[in-house]
Structures are given as C-alpha cells and as structure tokens.
C-alpha cells in the first residue's frame, strides 16, 4: 500500500511538472520545473526499490547537470534584462506554491527512506553494495567505456567551448538576400 501511495503521488507530480517544462516559455522556469520533475522521478525510483539510483538522480542530474543548464541559460540572458526581478525579494504569495511542492517532496523522500523500501520480491534488490559489485565485475567493460566517454566529453566540451577560433565575419548572422 505504501508503494501504491508513493508511486501515484510521484507519478502525478512527475507528469505535472514535466508538462510545465514543455508548456512554459521561460527557459529559467523550464529548468526549475525540470529539477522538480527529476525529484519526482527519483521518488519513482524509490518506489521501484532503487534507492541508490534515486540519490544519484538527485545528486548528479538535479545537482550537477541542471546547475550547468541554469548557468548557461542565465549567462546567455535569454529573457532580456531582468535585473530588478532577480534582486527583488520574492513576496510571500510567490513563495507558497514552490514552498509547498518542495516541502511535499522533502516529506516524501524522508518518509520513504526512513520507512525502508517497500516490500521487495528480492531483498537484494535494494542493496547498493551489490549494485557496485555487479558494476565492477560483470559490467566492467561498460565502466571503462564510460570513463573514455567522460574523457572525450571533457576534451570535446573544452575544445568546442573554448572560443576565439570563430572568424570575425561569422559573428553576425549573415543576411540572406535570396529569401
């Protein structure tokens, strides 16, 4: 029963926040809703007896990748000048919905982590130690390939994002007189 409640709450929240990611036009709001959606998906992982994956989802996805997104969105300043809005303190009315959502997520995560994972068909399913053993024995080739891919990603990101190699003629969009 606990798994039922957890799953339905998390699923409804995931679908709702993901819809908001697609609907909203503001890129900053989209990223923030995506963080909410990732938390909800982490709860779905918890209901699937995968606590390690749930925490990786929160730490790596919501913590690292989404901050990278937010950094780029804010650096590009896509919404025009919004300086006053960024420095203004939010009013109490603006705090209600995000505060309530965050509180609900916190309560759900704490409750489901402290109550133990719901009835498992196999007790070993939720053991992070076994997951690590499996990862570094049977799927060791995948670990090596992941390392290579991360290295390639780092070098590629550095090379592409380095800047300075762009010809000056390309800095402005080329006016296409033919259309």
């Amino acid at each position: 029963m606990a798994q039922n409640i957890l799953f339905y709450l998390a699923a409804v929240m995931a679908v709702a926040t993901t819809s908001m990611v697609v609907i909203t036009r503001n890129a900053v709001y989209a990223v923030l809703y995506l963080i909410m959606s990732l938390f909800a998906v982490a709860l779905v992982f918890l209901s699937l007896n995968a606590p390690f994956l749930a925490l990786v989802e929160i730490i790596v996805y919501a913590g690292a990748i989404m901050v990278l997104f937010l950094f780029v969105v804010m650096m590009l300043n896509l919404q025009g000048q919004r300086g006053d809005e960024a420095t203004k303190r939010p009013t109490r009315r603006q705090m209600i919905v995000p505060g309530a959502l965050a509180l609900l997520l916190l309560i759900l995560i704490v409750v489901s982590l402290s109550a133990g994972t719901p009835a498992a068909t196999n007790a070993a399913l939720s053991d992070p130690k076994l997951l690590g053993e499996l990862l570094f024995t049977k799927h060791y080739l995948g670990v090596k390939l992941s390392g290579i891919i991360l290295l390639i990603g780092t070098i590629g990101g550095l090379h592409i994002g380095r800047g300075g190699s762009i010809p000056s003629t390309m800095e402005k969009p080329i006016d296409d007189v033919t259309h």
Binding site: F69, V72, L76, I152, G156, G157, G161
Partner: peptide, 13 residues
Amino acid sequence: ACEAAVALAIILN
C-alpha cells in the same frame, strides 16, 4: 552528463 556538457558548449558557440 557528457551529452549535456558538449551540447551546452555547442550552444554557447
């Protein structure tokens, strides 16, 4: 993670 890093670099470019 990899894909996001490279794609964001491309977007900056």
